[in-house]
Amino acid sequence: MSWFGGNTDDDLNDPDIAKETIASLIQDRGQLEDRAKELEAMIAEKKKEVEEVEKAGDVAQEKANRATLLAKQIMDAVHVKEREIQALARRLSVMVGVYGLQPEVEKLAGKLTRARESVFPAPLVISGPTGVGKATLITRLFEEYEDLFGFPTSYTSRPIAEGEVQGRDFIFASRVDMESAMREGRFLEISEVDGDLYGTTVESVVRLMDEGKICVLRIDLEGVEQLKSSPISPVCIWVSPPSVGELRKRLMQRGIAEGDELEERIDMAEGEMQKAEGPAQSLFDHFVVNGELEKAYASLKNILLRYPSLEKEIRRRQNQAPQTPQQ
């Protein structure tokens, strides 16, 4: 048998069989050529893929080499630091053990903890309805202990009024600038009153704290809520009148408001008092009723004895006061 589909040499002598065999061979050749072309295309494609892989492999290898070198440098640096830290730890251990420094270290830590409020005293927030006497109490504090307290200069978007000075009474800024600063998180508290923005910046409060002064903030309930959620941990005091009737009387005597405006302020004050002494009570650390000014001021000073700087100053003045001779 021949490899031609099983035909013998005798078969090929038959013209019809020979013709059929040649036709089959031509067809097979065409199919083989087509298949060869497909294989060539596949080989070319695979060759291209191999080249890309090799190229990518070269890049990856370069990156890997760089990463390996960087890792080695980092590890070398870490080992150096570890040796330095271990050596320092051993030295500290020896110093504590040999020289008995542990009690001193603990004592120093305690002193630092107790001194923190002396160095960076927490801000003092005094809040209450309009006309309750917040400004009067604060003025008394500043007059008696002017070196211990400080007021941060607040920002406002309202126009400057006659007699006001830029940077002294307020920092007058545009509403756009204040809103931009608010988005940047530069305000500790900011609120809108009668269409104008009022706010206290983080920088102004921190500056007073760095100076060792007690920063005093006179703000409304909304501002207190914002401050209580900030990291500065203020001491918040709510000042209330002995009664709504007394508050009405004070507002009328001071000419702060009259007629419909007076009633609006009274309604607002009643709402603030109900909130401050009810749902928002947890916002405040202390409550002072300003019925008689001297008693209210004495209560305020007693609360502020928690500040080491004020307690120290009060004790110093008491020690310096002339002693009454005993009979």
Rank of each mutant, 00 (worst) to 15 (best):
N7S: 07
D9W: 15
D9Y: 15
D10V: 15
D14K: 03
D14T: 04
D16C: 06
A18C: 14
T21A: 06
A23G: 10
S24P: 02
Q31P: 05
L32D: 05
L32T: 15
E33M: 10
E33I: 14
E40S: 07
A41L: 07
M42R: 11
I43W: 00
K46G: 03
K47G: 05
K48V: 13
V50D: 01
G57I: 02
K63C: 07
N65W: 05
T68K: 04
L69W: 08
A71T: 08
Q73N: 01
D76V: 01
V78G: 01
E82H: 15
R83P: 09
R83D: 10
A87K: 13
A89Y: 08
V94H: 08
V98L: 06
L101E: 11
L101K: 06
Q102M: 13
P103E: 07
P103H: 08
V105K: 04
E106Y: 15
A109C: 15
G110Q: 13
G110A: 14
K111E: 09
K111Y: 13
K111V: 15
R114C: 12
A115M: 09
R116A: 11
P121C: 09
A122P: 04
V125R: 04
P129K: 00
K134F: 03
L137K: 01
F142A: 00
F149I: 00
P152R: 03
S154E: 09
Y155C: 06
R158E: 04
I160C: 06
A161M: 07
E162P: 00
E164N: 10
F170K: 04
I171K: 11
S174P: 14
V176G: 01
D177G: 04
R183F: 12
I190P: 08
S191I: 08
V193G: 01
L197M: 01
S204H: 06
M209Y: 04
I214D: 03
R218G: 06
G223Q: 02
G223A: 02
V224Y: 01
Q226W: 08
K228I: 14
S229Q: 09
I237D: 03
P241W: 02
S243Q: 02
E246H: 15
R248D: 00
R248W: 03
M252W: 12
Q253E: 11
R254G: 01
E258H: 11
G259F: 09
G259C: 09
D260Y: 11
E261H: 12
E264W: 07
M268V: 14
Q274V: 15
Q281I: 14
S282Q: 12
L283E: 03
H286K: 05
H286L: 02
V288H: 04
V288F: 05
N290A: 05
L293K: 11
K295A: 13
A296E: 03
A298L: 06
L300K: 09
L300S: 08
I303H: 05
I303A: 03
L305N: 05
R306P: 01
Y307M: 02
L310R: 00
I314V: 07
R315E: 11
Q318R: 12
N319E: 10
Q320T: 10
A321E: 09
A321V: 06
T324V: 14
